[in-house]
């Protein structure tokens, strides 16, 4: 066999192998996506998804919260949730309440509601108390 022909054959084998690999991987992933329980399994997802996506339907919760806020633009937010992770809630607050001045966000688990509380939105996972700052 001539070297050129051997090289051409080798190239064809490599290309065919890559095509087969791509088709197998894509097919396998389609099966995973069809099986709802196996969708979140890539590297970054297994490491960070549970930590970052800790509240289901958080967009709905904040949408309701925003409706409860009415015209108030400067607020202090108390989240009744345990465990409370300040950084996570601060980021979510800024993301879902754009244009609002959230002066402070804290937790009040176990404490009686603040007398300054003007509106409360309750959920299974988290409950918000909104304190308007004048």
């Amino acid at each position: 066999m001539f070297p050129e022909r051997r090289r051409a054959l080798l190239r064809r084998i490599v290309l065919t192998s890559i095509v087969a690999l791509v088709l197998c991987v894509s097919g396998y992933r389609m099966v995973l996506l069809a099986a709802k329980s196996k969708r979140i399994m890539a590297r970054g997802e297994t490491r960070f998804f549970r930590w970052a996506h800790r509240e289901q339907d958080i967009d709905t919760k904040f949408r309701d919260l925003r409706a409860a806020l009415g015209g108030r633009r400067s607020i202090e937010l108390v989240v009744h949730v345990a465990p409370f992770e300040e950084t996570w809630w601060q980021i979510m607050c800024r993301y879902y309440l754009p244009g609002y001045r959230v002066v402070r966000i804290g937790t009040a688990v176990g404490n009686p509601p603040s007398p300054l509380t003007e509106a409360v939105v309750s959920y299974d996972g988290a409950r918000f108390s909104i304190v308007e700052l004048r």
Binding site: L23, R29, L33, R39, A52, I91, Y95, P98
Partner: peptide, 26 residues
């Protein structure tokens, strides 16, 4: 064919990446 899982997955998985909420999306 190879890009089909990307489109499907992006459509059905919730938006969750921390840097989206903390940096780009906010």
């Amino acid at each position: 064919t190879a890009v089909a899982p990307f489109v499907w997955k992006s459509a059905i998985v919730p938006l969750w990446s921390w840097d989206h909420f903390a940096i780009w999306g906010v």
